[in-house]
Design a protein around this nucleic acid. Structure first.
Lengths: 172, 172
DNA sequence: CCTCCACTGACACGACTGTTTCAGTAATGC
DNA sequence: GCATTACTGAAACAGTCGTGTCAGTGGAGG
């Protein structure tokens, strides 16, 4: 389990990568920005890969907290979109997309399985929001796959164009 | 306009990045893999950024050729999905997603505007396939935005899980 | 007091980065 | 034949990368 200093630095590093991206982060600029040193980061996280892994887990924690918060039941898609389209969440979602793409290109290393895991997480939430009688039918699976696709595709559009009006009204 | 040797090397480099990714490509391994040298790549493309820009343009040419080939009219969405879900196109689409994410994280440099441009391209194709009487209405705009979101989201799912069966039947 | 432990600073190592310099070669146009 | 052009090879440049080494801190527990 992490020490106090470790979580403190992880939090600072997390804020850093939210604005600078995770793909080409390097230890020295990161350490300088959060008032630490490469020596300490390496001491606490073992290696750069360990740090990236911790940051990815940190981002995923944010995502899982959201999903737990959204809850289940009718109207999930609308509630999810409301959260996804909030301007305040854009850095997190850009980071999310970056990790997603990276895990596809480089299936090894700390990114491994990120994309697959996140698809599974969201599908599970959508499943929990379906009526029990369709939940385990092929039609139910198709329905939530379609809902997820719609949300993710709309998110891609929004992140690229920033045109929240057009995308949101398309989802209505 | 590019010389013969330039397009030849660009083609080889393009094949290389399709399997190795574009984000963290570096000149020496790339040059070695395609039987060239950093000296020549730099001579022909000016800089690494020039090379990346050329590669991005090359990938975009593939995409635009597809869109021209798909044509317009009813059934576009199905035809587009057929193309997107073809296993042979997976490397290209992974590269596409990588460039998309990168252009969001790093709005400057050779990646600039890639995501926005590709959204525009596809929306235009979908627009051309709409009946003339809805093409310029808010409802038409919303409809093609939704179609695009569905396709892109389904693509994300497919690239992560490889579960073509589930995703394709969700789109039917 | 003294030991242990979490943490930190300064520095160097080898590997790799994009790029430059200087040197050629081979073919083309006059 | 000669100059120009397109391309290529070898080596070096300064910089950054992740990581390791060696030396300390400061505070908490016995």
């Amino acid at each position: 389990m992490p020490s106090a200093r470790e979580t403190e630095l992880l939090e600072a590093a997390y804020r850093y990568v939210l604005t600078h991206g995770l793909a080409d982060v390097s230890l020295r600029p990161l350490a300088a920005a959060i008032g630490s040193s490469t020596r300490v980061l390496l001491y606490l996280f073992g290696s750069k890969e360990g740090l990236v892994r911790a940051l990815l887990a940190r981002a995923r924690a944010d995502e899982l907290a959201l999903l737990a918060d959204i809850g289940a039941g009718p109207g999930v898609v609308a509630r999810l979109w409301e959260w996804l389209s909030a301007p305040a969440h854009r850095p997190l979602l850009t980071l999310w997309l970056e990790a997603y793409a990276r895990s596809l290109v480089e299936p090894d290393g700390p990114w491994a399985g990120f994309a697959r895991a996140t698809v599974h997480d969201w599908l599970e939430v959508l499943r929990a929001s379906q009526p029990v009688d369709v939940r385990d039918t092929p039609a139910g699976l198709a329905a939530r796959t379609r809902e997820l696709a719609l949300l993710r595709g709309a998110l891609l559009d929004l992140l690229a164009t920033g045109d929240g009006e057009r995308v949101s009204s398309a989802l209505a």
